[in-house]
Design a protein around this nucleic acid. Structure first.
Lengths: 162, 162
DNA sequence: TAAAATATGTCAACAGTGCTGACATATTTA
DNA sequence: TAAATATGTCAGCACTGTTGACATATTTTA
């Protein structure tokens, strides 16, 4: 491949030693990526057995955490469009992991609730993730473990407004 | 939709108050998701202007962080297959953000390097992410900010082995 | 009350990024 | 020399995201 160029002699001006201004903690960026990669991976095996993907996990997670969530609120949290949500939510309704109730105040709204089946599934999905977090916290020898939660909360756009 | 059921009377056994064993910190799980969602979102606008996606970002990030990375090493870090990588890496090579050199020891290997153009791009992509992290760390009032990095490092599979 | 706005749902087409399987080339190792 | 390895490519497919268009039920506004 790329037989045109004698690639051991590829333009040395590209593989450059030019110093760029750089006050960026790449180690931290890397750690955040790797941490999240393995964190979400904890649930993959269970999800695959259910025929679900990570999108189902996220939907079920937030419905479980926030009983009575409306569709619009869920879309806002997930940061996706209703068309993206529809397929995944439809499957979770069909599989009876989630149920809907018509809104009391506003009958246009669909309030979402996890079923017992759904609650059991999200517990199963969350358990290895929670265990990973607890182990990581313990081994980090933090004087104040709550500070890590505060850091994570500060990372969201919503928190940066305040 | 779903006119068959009087959904205000949907099976109350599904919307259950049954207590499940639950020692899971859902707030922490949520915060981690939201933090990562907004963290990666920082780069989206720049990526879109370049005609790139988040996969390009990840590839360029690790090549920049680890000059001379081989393809196999990169695949291992990213946790994807070579077929998945190929399209993205091909585009980054074509756009001259990354260059290859044949391995010195093993001429089968392709050692990957960022070009000056690539280094400038990854700096541009990483700057808002780094700023977000620094602000979040400061506002978390940590006695030891390095402990957060340690926590994140502990979250990876590799670290859990030790 | 009629019209406009809102919340939700659905269809269609498409894009980005992952997967598996199969096969090819160059190079190194046994 | 034969087998193993590192890489690349093609084809087909799955999951999850997008936009645009349109429909229905309900609420709000004029």
């Amino acid at each position: 491949m790329n037989k045109d160029l004698p690639d051991t002699l590829l333009s040395q001006t590209d593989i450059t030693n030019v110093e760029l201004p750089d006050n960026i903690d790449f180690d931290f960026l890397e750690a955040f990526f790797l941490a999240y990669r393995d964190f979400v991976g904890d649930a993959d095996k269970t999800l695959e057995e259910m025929g679900f993907g990570r999108a189902h996990h996220r939907v079920l997670f937030f419905v479980n955490k926030n009983h009575g969530l409306t569709v619009a609120e869920l879309l806002d949290i997930l940061g996706i469009t209703k068309q993206s949500l529809s397929r995944v939510l439809r499957q979770l309704l069909d599989s009876q992991h989630i149920t809907q109730k018509t809104g009391r105040d506003d009958r246009r709204q669909r309030m979402l609730y996890p079923t017992l089946k759904g609650r059991e599934l999200i517990l199963q999905l969350s358990t290895p993730q929670s265990r990973r977090i607890n182990t990581a916290l313990q081994n980090a020898e933090l004087s104040d473990p709550q500070a890590v939660l505060k850091f994570l909360t500060n990372m969201t756009n919503a928190s940066q407004k305040g």
